[in-house]
């Protein structure tokens, strides 16, 4: 009897999920205002407004008439030269979000997003140098003056939360434009960086909390 009850519950729930098939993907750009230049050396290249631009993509699954669950990621990336070498820094803000929404008007949706984040940051530097062993081997083959490129990166991970309010306008039932305003709260620690599996100190970046404005296209079924 108990088994039948479980089976019946499972079937009802499954039917409910199948009855609400709506998967959507979002691609957008965002603007944030973290201060990447608060430490003395200031190695991060200045890119003006573009420095604070982020690319965003997300996937959602509607599991309830007014709610979606999904994965969302913001990427902040900059590359330039540092003391003549190729330099890049990136921050990936990854969130598992729950989004509730309602339609105040036809085609217009107001949504509310909340989610925990697991973020990562990396700073990489590619340097060109002459390595004596390689140099000797090259000389054996009558080559000389070849520089070897070596690249490595320092990385960090930190937690955060995100929250935002958005408005989505459906151009077609499967295509919409969306804008959001919210914030990201990060628990970033400059002492939690790693380089070559060793704990090191990283840059003192002000990304503890920053406002977030995003604009994107949503495609969904």
């Amino acid at each position: 009897m108990r088994c039948t009850y479980h089976l019946l519950t499972g079937l009802i729930l499954t039917s409910f999920i199948i009855a609400q098939p709506k998967i959507s993907g979002r691609l957008g750009i965002g603007y944030s205002s973290p201060d990447y230049k608060t430490f003395a050396e200031s190695p991060f290249p200045k890119k003006g407004t573009f420095e604070n631009m982020m690319v965003n993509f997300s996937f959602d699954y509607q599991f309830y008439p007014n709610a979606r669950v999904g994965y969302s990621q913001w990427i902040s990336f900059t590359s330039d030269n540092y003391e003549g070498e190729d330099f890049s820094r990136s921050f990936n803000y990854r969130a598992v979000v729950i989004e509730t929404y309602f339609f105040p008007r036809r085609k217009l949706e107001i949504n509310f997003t909340l989610g925990p984040m697991i973020n990562s940051g990396s700073i990489s530097l590619a340097t060109k140098q002459t390595i004596s062993a390689w140099d000797s081997l090259m000389v054996e083959f009558n080559n000389s003056g070849i520089e070897v490129s070596t690249a490595d990166e320092m990385t960090t991970k930190f937690f955060g939360i995100t929250s935002s309010i958005g408005a989505r306008y459906y151009i077609k039932p499967y295509l919409a434009i969306e804008t959001k305003i919210g914030f990201i709260e990060n628990y970033y620690l400059k002492d939690k960086w790693k380089f070559q599996d060793k704990d090191i100190k990283g840059p003192d970046i002000d990304i503890e909390d920053f406002p977030l404005f995003t604009f994107g296209l949503v495609y969904g079924w």
Partner: peptide
Amino acid sequence: IEVDHENSATFQGFTSTCAYCVSSSV
């Protein structure tokens, strides 16, 4: 579009709680 509007015109169940949390935090 009509069906979407009918199904989600108002909050149902727990969804309003989530919306209040988000609104107040923002």
